[in-house]
Amino acid sequence: MNITVDEIRRVIVASAGASESGVSDADFADTTFDALGYESLALMETATAIESEFGVLIPDELLFEARTPRELAELVRSAKEAAAA
């Protein structure tokens, strides 16, 4: 399963609410979570939703290494592939 940035965005918005940063859709993937206004609690809620929806557990130490939605999508994809192997 290929988990996209759009899917990650949908999960983030559903879990933590819409970003109030005014970042365009094109820039969202590579904008840092700090710049988007998502703090650690929002990311933890997102990780819980990712686990529920995609069956992937993201340990906190890895979750906080992801600085952008694109990096989080790549992390989720890698974890999903590792779990399937």
Results as ranks from 00 to 15, higher is better:
68 T>F: 00
28 F>T: 01
39 E>M: 00
59 P>H: 03
69 P>R: 07
66 A>Y: 03
41 L>F: 12
42 A>E: 09
47 A>C: 06
80 K>G: 03
68 T>I: 02
63 L>P: 14
77 R>I: 10
82 A>G: 05
73 A>Y: 13
34 D>G: 02
78 S>A: 15
54 F>P: 01
53 E>F: 00
40 S>Q: 08
65 E>S: 12
1 M>H: 07
58 I>D: 10
37 G>K: 02
36 L>R: 08
71 E>S: 14
49 A>K: 10
31 T>C: 09
63 L>H: 06
35 A>S: 13
21 S>L: 05
36 L>I: 02
4 T>R: 10
29 A>F: 04
84 A>N: 12
6 D>V: 04
30 D>W: 00
8 I>R: 03
31 T>L: 05
82 A>P: 01
52 S>M: 11
4 T>M: 06
6 D>M: 08
59 P>D: 02
50 I>Y: 00
34 D>Y: 00
1 M>G: 13
8 I>F: 07
3 I>Y: 06
25 D>A: 11
4 T>Q: 05
54 F>V: 07
37 G>V: 00
12 I>C: 04
23 V>E: 00
75 L>S: 08
74 E>T: 10
53 E>M: 09
11 V>Y: 06
10 R>N: 09
66 A>T: 00
49 A>L: 10
60 D>E: 13
36 L>A: 03
11 V>C: 05
19 S>K: 00
40 S>H: 01
48 T>A: 15
41 L>N: 09
10 R>P: 00
57 L>N: 11
85 A>G: 15
57 L>C: 05
46 T>L: 09
44 M>I: 15
73 A>R: 04
15 S>N: 11
43 L>E: 03
47 A>W: 02
42 A>R: 05
21 S>F: 01
20 E>D: 10
18 A>S: 09
26 A>H: 08
84 A>I: 01
49 A>R: 15
69 P>W: 00
51 E>F: 04
14 A>I: 10
59 P>E: 01
9 R>V: 05
61 E>F: 11
19 S>N: 06
79 A>T: 05
67 R>K: 14
85 A>L: 14
35 A>Y: 07
63 L>A: 08
29 A>D: 10
38 Y>L: 02
53 E>I: 12
25 D>K: 01
66 A>R: 04
13 V>T: 13
53 E>K: 09
29 A>V: 08
19 S>H: 06
62 L>D: 15
74 E>M: 12
75 L>I: 02
7 E>Q: 15
78 S>R: 15
22 G>E: 04
12 I>F: 03
41 L>Q: 04
81 E>N: 13
41 L>S: 08
52 S>V: 09
18 A>M: 10
11 V>R: 02
3 I>S: 06
51 E>C: 14
76 V>L: 05
28 F>I: 03
24 S>C: 08
25 D>G: 04
27 D>Q: 04
47 A>R: 08
8 I>T: 07
36 L>T: 11
32 T>Y: 06
9 R>F: 01
64 F>L: 06
55 G>F: 08
76 V>M: 12
17 G>I: 08
15 S>C: 09
56 V>E: 08
83 A>H: 10
49 A>N: 11
84 A>G: 10
34 D>C: 02
16 A>S: 12
74 E>A: 15
15 S>V: 12
